[in-house]
Design a protein around this nucleic acid. Structure first.
Lengths: 158, 158
DNA sequence: GATGAAAAGCCGTAGTC
DNA sequence: GACTACGGCTTTTCATC
């Protein structure tokens, strides 16, 4: 289950993480492999969990969620059971796209999308009222999104 | 080109943004539509740019980039031409996954993945040496990733 | 153990009603 | 929006290295 990826695996990944609909035959032609070999490798990487998912990327603006916020959340670290329920809360909230627990002053960093300011404010109010260990939070509004993606760099080297 | 999405469109999106490989027939069965109707809607949404891309999601740890950093970059705002070249620099750097220009003290927020600390340090050194308008930056290391995705909330309501 | 070639099945596409 | 026929892609099998 914890196989190493070889050069060909990485070249396949570098293609499909930009375009998952690309035909295996075309990928194979680029990297010198038959279509079936490409598909077998893809199936293996799905099984092993290297490929987590294959998803459609939606334009947030077109989908009615034009606002993006970066929120730093400061929490009390004293009570571990409250941290666990905060994690669950975050997992449940569809508007919270990304969340990291980071070094620093007991902080979580959240990336949040919202329909509008009211929508966002309501979410933040629920954040503090539902989670007693949230001390304070600081919001930064994304004025423009320069880059958005989850592309993992794939070095050609082996 | 700027059509509104109806309830069925949104239900299709809510499925394929989690699983783009799901057959149109199965999606249609769930939402009460024929396979061809689902496909036609998907084709239309691709044309209109609602569906930006269909991509494979890779586990960063398995792909040799286990570290994630959140970097706040403070820039001088005086020279607009330097801002433009910084944007280009960010766009070119594969390790920078996400970048927002945010409200606050002339800040960019970056999400960066790296192989190890040295790899990350080298990137940050190039950031400051290649971009004269970068005043300072502050790094927070992601100790754990609670959530990662680009799922746009899809309200069932119409 | 992985590959390439061919067969079979499934899915997406396009045209029609 | 549904139905049908077609073409293409994926999946499986099999022989080979």
């Amino acid at each position: 289950m914890a196989m190493e990826l070889d050069k060909l695996d990485r070249r396949i990944l570098s293609v499909i993480q930009k375009d998952a609909r690309r035909a295996a035959e075309l990928i194979g032609a680029d990297i010198g492999l038959s279509a079936s070999a490409v598909q077998r490798r893809m199936a293996r990487m799905r099984d092993e969990g290297v490929i987590t998912a294959e998803v459609a990327v939606i334009d947030p603006k077109r989908a009615g969620h034009p606002l993006t916020m970066i929120v730093d959340v400061e929490v009390e670290r004293e009570r571990p059971e409250l941290l666990a329920s905060l994690k669950q809360w975050i997992a449940m909230e569809a508007r919270i796209q990304e969340a990291w627990y980071v070094t620093g002053a007991g902080d979580y960093v959240l990336v949040v999308v919202a329909r509008d300011v009211e929508d966002f404010e309501a979410l933040m109010q629920r954040l503090v009222s539902d989670n007693a260990n949230v001390r304070r939070f600081q919001t930064r509004v994304a004025l423009s999104t320069l880059k958005r993606g989850m592309l993992i760099p794939m070095e050609p080297a082996d």
